[in-house]
Design a protein around this nucleic acid. Structure first.
Lengths: 237, 237
DNA sequence: AGATTAGTATTGTGATCACAAAAATATTTC
DNA sequence: GAAATATTTTTGTGATCACAATACTAATCT
């Protein structure tokens, strides 16, 4: 049946108020984010439909949406797959994150009030606790939540969807980053960012965000190490 | 039949090697780019299908893809429309363009060879000629072509899809910008950028790109003027 | 008359079917 | 036995249908 490896999904709860397409989209998005789908593996509509126990139609729509967000790649054959990572592409994605997210942070700064700052501190504390407890899985999601909460303070935000596209493309590496970094590092950069916010210091905030992103991916400090992790994520499973 | 204004499409030629969905996507994308669709106007699948003389299915897929690229907005009612522009959002989009595109230019710089530079000069000359002839329509497309050619010199480019999303959201304003700027300005900035490329000066290149974008939208120099153009594009037709 | 309600038409969603293109498999040829 | 060819299966695309939810219209009521 499956010439390639089977795909294991962590099926989310299906809320009644949500369309099937949206649920399929969320499920596939999580699978891509968590690296549950082998890059280069051909995804067929009917196979996913059977796996998720839905009709082909919602799968079709979800795949097209994910492809539009650069989470999936449509080959010339009209085949859909998770794009393969390369060292150069990884580097470009990180650089793009730094450029876009430091900009988003700067544009959000004037809108951050006490309530927002408090929410950030709360998330940061939660990250600390979760990481101390040795739970590496949810840290990645919480980290994203921290950044999202920061940028979305700007009510006229337009870059968040673009940033999420980059997160989606970095996919499993975001998780590796959370697993490999030390608690002190992460908290340091987050508190540094929050200090800059309190002082309304845009430059310092941008530096903190850039450092946070860069250090997050420091586990791949040398090209050789990076290549090892890429290979691992590419042929895992 | 149409409570709102009818939509006039400039139907592109339909190549046989292209799927219907792709053709519909291209047609709708151009319509959004050119401001042929009134913002806030509800777009229904069946209406568009009849207008374009295709079945509802390709329209459905094209709409979802455009929504994923932030060219269209899905309301809570599951209704699809061109999002309305505001002065603040316009400003954010311009700022995002400057941040992202100057970054893309910097990352492309090391890869620009003589052939690429020559291609840029050719496009620039074509822009000049077209504008001198008083033809404002194609200038916008050529301008995008100039930027696209520059950024895509980087073979590991990851930001171009994000940049195109911003262009799509700025939509008709890109055209207004091309119409309202003087020939000298545009050419100046482009030659400035190409001079920076020849000297491998990343900083100068970034400044030229930022200035090019900023001056392109200088026709909306005051908030009042900007609001006038927004209103014009919102209630045009 | 203006607001509310009942009825009607239209819409997005999802399912199923048909078909040509592509992939995989089986067969033949050298 | 390996390469080329023929056959079978699978796949994406597009069309059509059913249905519940929504938007629209007409009738009713105060």
């Amino acid at each position: 049946m499956d010439k390639n490896s089977p795909i294991e999904f962590t099926l989310a709860e299906r809320d009644a108020s949500v369309t099937i397409t949206q649920w399929v989209y969320a499920t596939l998005r999580n699978a891509v984010m968590d690296g549950q789908i082998l890059p280069g593996r051909a995804l067929t509509i009917r196979e996913l439909a059977k796996e998720l126990d839905v009709s082909p139609m919602p799968v079709r729509e979800a795949l097209r949406q994910l492809a539009a967000e650069n989470a999936l790649e449509i080959q010339g054959n009209r085949r859909v797959m998770v794009p393969k990572m390369t060292a150069m592409k990884f580097n470009e994605l990180c650089q793009a994150r730094m450029a876009l997210e430091s900009h988003a942070a700067e544009r959000a700064l004037p809108y951050i009030d006490d309530a927002r700052l408090q929410a950030l501190q709360q998330i940061d504390a939660l990250i600390d606790d979760t990481q101390m407890a040795g739970d590496h899985r949810p840290v990645s999601a919480l980290n994203q939540e921290f950044h999202r909460t920061l940028y979305s303070a700007n009510p006229h935000q337009v870059t968040l969807p673009l940033i999420e596209s980059l997160w989606l493309q970095l996919g499993p590496f975001m998780r590796l980053a959370s697993a490999h970094l030390e608690v002190s590092n992460q908290v340091d950069r987050h508190t540094e960012a929050m200090a800059a916010i309190e002082q309304r210091d845009a430059i310092a905030l941008q530096l903190a965000i850039k450092a946070d992103i860069r250090e997050g991916f420091n586990f791949a400090s040398t090209p050789e190490l990076l290549q090892r992790f890429i290979d691992q994520s590419n042929r895992h499973n």
